[in-house]
Computed example of a mutant assay.
Amino acid sequence: MELTQVRLLVSDFPAVYRFYRDVLGLKPQFEAEHGPYAKLSPDTGNCAVALQDRAQMAGVLGQLGTEPEGYRALVVLRVEDLDAAHAELGARGAEFVKAPGPMGERMRVAYLEDPERNLIELQEWLALREESARNARR
């Protein structure tokens, strides 16, 4: 078994698509602003976030139930510099629900929501930052 993607079921496909493409800066495999499906990836790594139109999936399954309440999904993105990412995404219109702060001793995190209130966590791995600083001093 191989995990190929995490897919979010969304009601306002164009708004969510533009958020992941324009605000977060993920690259679509193909342009599909009006759906019903899209897959977007960061510049590095082999992971992806996929978007699926909720109404289209309801048609496939026959029903999907009511809209979810509260957070039902968490997309996690690692960044090199959390403060820089926070400033850059804020300048692009992202509204954070929790500003950058520590998550234990090994990580800093910040949280924002996409247009359908899916939670997004930005992570800065402090051990990687310290290792990069040590390598730069050599």
Rank of each mutant, 00 (worst) to 15 (best):
V6E: 05
Y37H: 11
L89E: 06
V49G: 01
G104F: 03
V75K: 05
L112K: 00
E31R: 12
L26E: 02
A73I: 04
P68K: 15
L3M: 13
V76M: 02
V75S: 06
N46D: 14
H86W: 15
M107N: 11
G35N: 07
R21M: 09
A73Y: 09
G35S: 08
D43C: 07
A136D: 13
Q56E: 13
R18K: 13
D12Y: 09
S41I: 03
R7W: 11
T44Q: 08
G65N: 04
R137I: 05
D12K: 15
D53V: 02
L24F: 03
A48Q: 12
P100R: 02
P14Q: 13
L64P: 00
K39N: 11
E124F: 00
V75W: 04
V60N: 03
A48C: 15
L122T: 08
D114A: 04
Q123L: 02
G101I: 07
E124L: 00
D83R: 02
R54H: 09
L126Y: 08
A127S: 10
Q29K: 10
A85N: 11
A91G: 05
Y71T: 15
G59H: 04
E105M: 09
A133Q: 14
S11I: 01
P28T: 14
F13C: 05
R92F: 08
E80C: 05
E116D: 14
T66H: 11
E131L: 09
L64K: 01
E105Q: 13
A91V: 03
V23F: 02
F30Y: 15
Q52D: 06
E121K: 00
G59W: 07
Y71F: 08
A58E: 07
E95K: 12
R54Q: 06
P42H: 10
D114L: 04
V79Q: 01
E130N: 10
G101P: 00
T44W: 00
D114Y: 09
S11A: 15
G93Q: 07
N118I: 10
Y71R: 12
V97D: 06
L51Q: 04
S132F: 05
L3E: 10
V76L: 02
D53M: 02
T66N: 11
V79D: 01
L126R: 11
L89K: 09
Q52F: 13
R7T: 15
V49T: 09
Y111P: 01
R18H: 14
A133K: 14
G65Q: 09
A127V: 15
G59Y: 05
K98H: 04
Q52L: 14
V16N: 03
E2S: 14
G65L: 08
A84I: 03
A55E: 15
G45W: 06
L122D: 01
E131R: 12
I120P: 01
S11L: 08
R117A: 11
A133W: 03
L77N: 05
H86K: 02
R7I: 14
G93D: 06
L122W: 05
L119H: 09
E67W: 02
P42S: 11
V60A: 07
K27D: 13
L8G: 06
R21K: 12
V79A: 01
C47E: 15
G62M: 04
R7E: 08
C47A: 15
R137T: 08
H34E: 14
